[in-house]
């Protein structure tokens, strides 16, 4: 386990990304990108299409190894991990960072309940004595398996999926699949939950329910990092917004600060002055709409 010096970062920082760069051949997808996510907050990562948001996610969750830079995670217990040095599955298992995917990746042939049990694999693996004790019928495993089902049921309740627990995950409607993916990620017991466009394709009602779910997850002590295009979600629930364009950070701060930042407006709608004023008006009306 790679440990880093704690003195550098303040106590309530959970994730610290420093000078992150990712190069694909000749393309610099992310260039010297740094930001911090605070514990107990919802941090949103926004930016136009192709800005490199998902690449940042993939670097944090270990699916890509960054070309340069340092990603450090600080757990509640004081343990620290350098994520860029861990293999992807260790990032979830040890560093307690869970993620969802932009294009939903459920185990469609397994039932909803089984999806959540797979997420508790490591815990159950230990309880079953790496299968050997479990195969011999150890009571410890039976107890843990029961507990795992309870945990799963708890998250099914939260995600409003309890009625469909025994149906195949592939049979769920789109919005329910999104919620199931979040529930599945939560079953790994994460300290930081990374959501890649959780509101994509949801109708306004589902989107609202998602906001409630995400807020309650935050209030229970799991920090969130999310990529989102739906501004009503971003502006409403995030505590902190980071804006990315062409692999570089162009703005960083509270939602109010970001939405009035001319750089951000320019990034989203071009640099024409007349348009900027229009955009400001539009963003404000959007903001009003979201509050209403």
């Amino acid at each position: 386990m790679a440990s880093v010096d704690t003195s550098m970062t303040s106590k309530d920082t959970i994730l610290k990304v420093e000078h992150l760069s990712m190069r694909f051949g000749g393309l610099m997808a992310i260039n010297d990108f740094s930001f911090e996510a605070k514990r107990g907050e919802i941090t949103a990562l926004i930016g136009p299409n192709g800005a490199g948001k998902t690449t940042v996610f993939n670097c944090i969750t270990g699916f890509y190894k960054p070309t340069m830079g340092m990603i450090s995670l600080h757990q509640k217990s004081g343990k620290e991990y350098l994520l860029e040095r861990l293999p992807d599955f260790m990032i979830t298992r040890e560093a307690k960072v869970a993620r969802t995917f932009q294009n939903i990746r459920l185990f469609s042939g397994l039932t909803v309940l089984e999806n959540l049990l797979v997420a508790q694999h490591n815990k159950l693996m230990k309880a079953s004595g790496y299968t050997i004790l479990g195969l011999l019928g150890s009571p410890l495993y039976k107890r843990e398996a029961k507990k795992a089902i309870e945990t799963a049921a708890h998250w099914l309740e939260r995600a409003d999926l309890i009625d469909r627990a025994d149906d195949p995950a592939g049979d769920l409607p789109y919005g329910a699949q999104r919620r199931l993916e979040i529930a599945r990620a939560m079953c790994t017991g994460p300290e930081l939950l990374c959501l890649d466009e959780p509101a994509a394709g949801l109708n306004p009602k589902e989107s609202l329910a998602l906001n409630t779910l995400l807020r309650s997850i935050r209030d229970e002590g799991t920090s969130l990092l999310l990529i989102e295009h739906d501004m009503s979600v971003v502006m409403e629930i995030s505590d902190h917004v980071v804006v990315l364009e062409y692999g570089q950070k162009i703005s960083d701060g509270t939602p109010d600060h970001v939405k009035n930042d001319p750089k951000v407006i320019a990034a989203y709608l071009g640099v024409d002055d007349e348009e900027v004023t229009e955009v400001i008006a539009e963003v404000e009306s959007l903001d009003g709409g979201a509050k209403a």
Binding site: F89, R105, L106, F107, S108, G109, A119, H121
Partner: peptide, 17 residues
């Protein structure tokens, strides 16, 4: 269960530790 999950989606498996 991990075997079957692996059959369904390997990347999701890795994301679950």
């Amino acid at each position: 269960r991990a075997w079957e999950a692996l059959r369904e989606d390997e990347i999701a498996c890795r994301s679950l530790g």
